[in-house]
């Protein structure tokens, strides 16, 4: 088995009274894409920042590409690409200039720099806007540039923090295709997201994070089978009816969850007509997420 690209052991991080990360253990095997899934405030962004030593853990061990953090973080960062959640582009510079700054920072040799920038422009599909000032770009273009910036030095490991938040469906599916392509080239990817669909499509494995630790880890379909079975019955109706249905389901030994006007009964494939009638659908990662974290996806 290849050595993991990322290893976290017993990592804790507090900010004053708030515990952001509480005993996190996580491995990301080299060459795989791991989706870090969790509600807001679960500690995903803190975890991401710790991997570049922009946040220093209070305790625990972190290794990235074989380098021990935070001491050897600079070496690790040289081989990592980072796509942040917030837009921190240099808005006064052109697209090409933004990439050139990072090609220099990542020590791309002078002779290869222009080629590396062109390659990143092409990968992120922004070559047509290479000489536009960032200030003039649309949100989707800016996100493409953020991705290009993280790829300009051909990193072995890519850290994507909520890469498609707020993007229209077209740009989103384009970025998904890019991530898929990188994965097939053997780039290790750690991607935090709260879009279930994104994790299901792109990730080899998913780690579900809640309250600062990993609560489940595995391939999406395995997690679904293990935690919520294969089928779900959804019942719509007024609150008293749902309460009654929930009582019945619980009595029969079925787990269920309420989301506003919907009651979802999990593991419905095991029922022998004992469950109330409703709309049957396949169980999803979202069901796992809600069951494990007790929180809704927005």
């Amino acid at each position: 088995m290849p050595s993991p690209a990322i290893t976290l052991r017993g990592v804790h991080k507090r900010f004053g009274e708030i515990t952001a990360v509480a005993g996190l253990d996580l491995d990301v095997p080299a060459g795989t894409c791991l989706g870090l899934l969790g509600p807001n405030g679960a500690g995903k962004s803190t975890t991401m920042r710790m991997l570049t030593a922009q946040t220093i853990a209070d305790s625990g061990e972190i290794e990235v590409l074989g380098y021990r953090l935070p001491g050897e973080s600079k070496q690790a960062r040289a081989r990592c690409g980072v796509v942040p959640q917030i837009d921190n582009l240099d808005f006064e510079l052109t697209v090409r200039q933004n990439l050139t700054v990072f090609a220099r920072l990542y020590r791309v040799p002078k002779a290869e720099r222009a080629g590396a920038v062109d390659r990143a422009l092409a990968m992120a599909n922004i070559a047509a806007r290479a000489d536009s000032v960032v200030d003039e770009l649309s949100g989707g273009m800016r996100r493409r540039l953020l991705v290009a910036r993280g790829l300009v030095h051909r990193p072995e490991l890519l850290l994507l923090d909520e890469p498609t938040v707020g993007l229209d469906p077209q740009v989103r599916s384009e970025l998904w295709a890019l991530v898929d392509e990188l994965r097939s080239e053997g780039v290790t990817i750690l991607m935090s997201t709260h879009y279930i669909e994104e994790a299901e499509r792109l990730a080899d494995e998913v780690a579900i994070m809640a309250e600062g630790r990993i609560v489940a880890r595995g391939r999406p379909q395995d997690l679904v089978a293990e935690h919520v079975g294969t089928e779900v019955v959804e019942i719509y109706g007024p609150a008293p009816a749902l309460l009654e249905a929930e009582r019945r389901a619980t009595g029969e030994g079925f787990a269920s969850r309420r989301t506003g006007p919907v009651l979802a009964i999990l593991g419905a494939e095991r029922s022998n007509g004992a469950l109330p009638e409703g709309y049957r659908r396949p169980a999803s990662l979202e069901d796992v997420f809600v069951v494990l974290t007790g929180q809704e996806i927005e």
Partner: peptide, 28 residues
């Protein structure tokens, strides 16, 4: 320690890092 990369020498105040930021400032 098996999977650990060789510890690359990192100097303080590397000219490449300082040069990249200077280039940014000059460009702005």
């Amino acid at each position: 320690s098996q999977g650990r990369a060789p510890v690359a020498r990192v100097r303080r105040l590397e000219p490449a890092a300082i040069g990249a930021v200077l280039w940014r400032e000059l460009t702005v």
